[in-house]
């Protein structure tokens, strides 16, 4: 215990240096960061409260009574519950996520293939990815939502707006997600392919058992990031008339002439996305820790 002498002071304190890099967690650091946060928030709040139109804005956007009314809804008065409408968003993105994971993987594997037989498919998927990423999502939603019913086909033209909306989301997001998959696949070292093929595994077996499992592990954080974005973008389907959270908020504001419903919708979306965002960050940190540990060996 008496070893806490001068020699240790003379040595560079690596732990302290690291904690400085990562953010000082000493008590003084906590006090300082808390104080600065409080000051910043107080200044922002003061600006908001002292602005000339503050009372007006608070009444139109943050009225607790209207927020509650928008949350529970009143169909007889001509508006629906924003909370209930959110259920449609949830269903849409769950279905879309599953489909996107499948379509994106198929597209990525086709684009990554080398066989001459698959060349036509490679061309088609390449064009698809370019187009689907290049056209704004809102236009894809309009194209499917108004175009497919107008074709007057059986089944295809008789779906609800939500179905067209999900189709548009899948079309757009699968292109992005296929690129994420592709990055993951090419991130697996070539020597892994050589090892798999040298054992007599076919190209598809190598992909399935050796490459994809490693690729997918690496791309979970960017995939989740895309899904956070997807959760919000389900709100765009309201443009086709589906009563999802954002559309319900719009109906409320049209009826009651108060925008607090939009704040309710925003809060509900945050409640959905923040846990996923935290989870993604957690995975990224864990991944970094694993990489650091690996590099140290």
């Amino acid at each position: 215990m008496e070893a806490q002498g001068p020699p240790q002071l003379a040595l560079p304190d690596l732990a302290a240096r690291r904690s400085r890099l990562l953010g000082d967690s000493s008590r003084r650091g906590v006090v300082l960061s808390t104080a600065s946060t409080v000051v910043v928030l107080a200044v922002l709040l003061a600006v908001f409260l002292l602005a000339p139109g503050s009372a007006q804005v608070r009444h139109t956007f943050l009225n607790p009574a209207d927020m509650w009314k928008a949350f529970v809804g009143d169909p007889k008065a001509g508006y629906y519950s924003v909370g209930e409408a959110l259920w449609l968003n949830i269903r849409m993105f769950v279905v879309a996520e599953v489909l996107i994971l499948i379509v994106g993987l198929v597209v990525a594997v086709i684009r990554q293939s080398t066989g001459p037989v698959l060349l036509p498919l490679r061309v088609v998927t390449t064009i698809y990815v370019d187009v689907a990423r290049g056209v704004p999502l809102i236009l894809i939603i309009f194209a499917l939502g108004y175009g497919l019913p107008a074709l007057q086909l059986t089944v295809i033209s008789d779906q609800s707006a939500a179905v067209y909306g999900v189709a548009a989301l899948v079309l757009s997001y699968s292109a992005y997600v296929s690129e994420v998959y592709r990055a993951g696949i090419s991130g697996v070292h070539r020597s892994q392919v050589a090892a798999a093929r040298s054992l007599g595994l076919s190209q598809s077996s190598s992909m399935r058992y050796v490459i994809l499992p490693q690729a997918i592990r690496n791309i979970i954080p960017p995939l989740l990031n895309d899904f956070i974005s997807l959760q919000k973008d389900t709100a765009l389907v309201g443009l086709l008339g589906s009563i999802e959270a954002n559309k319900a908020a719009e109906l409320f504001s049209d009826t009651v002439f108060n925008y607090s419903s939009y704040v309710v919708a925003a809060i509900l979306f945050l409640i959905l996305t923040i846990p996923l965002a935290r989870f993604t960050d957690h995975l990224i940190r864990r991944d970094q820790a694993r990489r650091l540990a690996g590099a140290g060996q």
Partner: peptide, 27 residues
């Protein structure tokens, strides 16, 4: 024809046993 590489190239996401049994099972 078995080949062994300078850099081992084991499959990092599989146990030792699975590394060894994969090809006999699938091939």
């Amino acid at each position: 024809v078995g080949i062994v590489f300078q850099s081992f190239n084991l499959f990092p996401h599989m146990t030792v046993e699975r590394n060894v049994t994969l090809a006999p099972m699938k091939v």
